[in-house]
């Protein structure tokens, strides 16, 4: 499995299907998919990092919380992330570090605003690796 993620079209909104050999990789790829909607990941440098730790009721909530946390960092601090280390992940707990930089209008084209990750059509599937699907409100 070489594909990290693909974009899912939805009339009102947009989604991401992300893949990973394990759940950690699928969560990291979903996050990369999210930022690929916002900007071109190739143009983002790893100038800073943020540590994120979350607790949730189940894996689905954790995935939504994880992506919403990243949307928060983009919206509140203007941070574009491009790489993620998922340090710990089980069904209720996530510890991760995201690397990226502050958005700079001279260098980064911002393609789309993302309001939030939703539970709508949310899927976490295990079948020869992991496949996760998330829809965003745009």
């Amino acid at each position: 499995m070489t594909k990290e993620f693909e974009v899912l079209d939805h009339t009102a909104d947009i989604g991401i299907i992300a893949y990973g050999a394990d759940l950690k990789q699928a969560f990291a790829n979903a996050a990369r998919g999210l930022f690929s909607l916002i900007t071109s990941l190739g143009g983002v440098e790893e100038a800073l990092h943020r540590d994120i730790e979350l607790t949730a009721a189940d894996a689905e909530s954790l995935l939504v919380d994880w992506l919403n946390e990243l949307i928060y960092y983009f919206d509140a601090e203007g941070i574009l992330f491009k790489r993620f280390d998922i340090i710990e992940l089980n069904n209720s707990h996530l510890k991760a570090r995201g690397y990226g930089e502050k958005a700079d209008s001279a260098r980064h084209e911002l393609k789309m605003g993302v309001k939030a990750a939703t539970y709508h059509m949310l899927k976490i599937e295990k079948n020869n690796g992991y496949r996760v699907q998330v829809l965003f409100d745009i």
Binding site: A56, A57, E60, S61, V64, D65, N68, I71, Y72, D75, K115, A116, A117, T118, Y119, H120, L122, D137
Partner: peptide, 28 residues
């Protein structure tokens, strides 16, 4: 947007607490 995200999460817990039957979690 953040208020909605926060409360979808919080009310997701309330759904269990109050024993509400929903076909879609986004309806929390």
């Amino acid at each position: 947007h953040q208020i909605c995200s926060d409360y979808v999460e919080l009310l997701g817990q309330a759904v269990k607490k109050y024993g509400i039957n929903l076909p879609d979690r986004q309806l929390a």
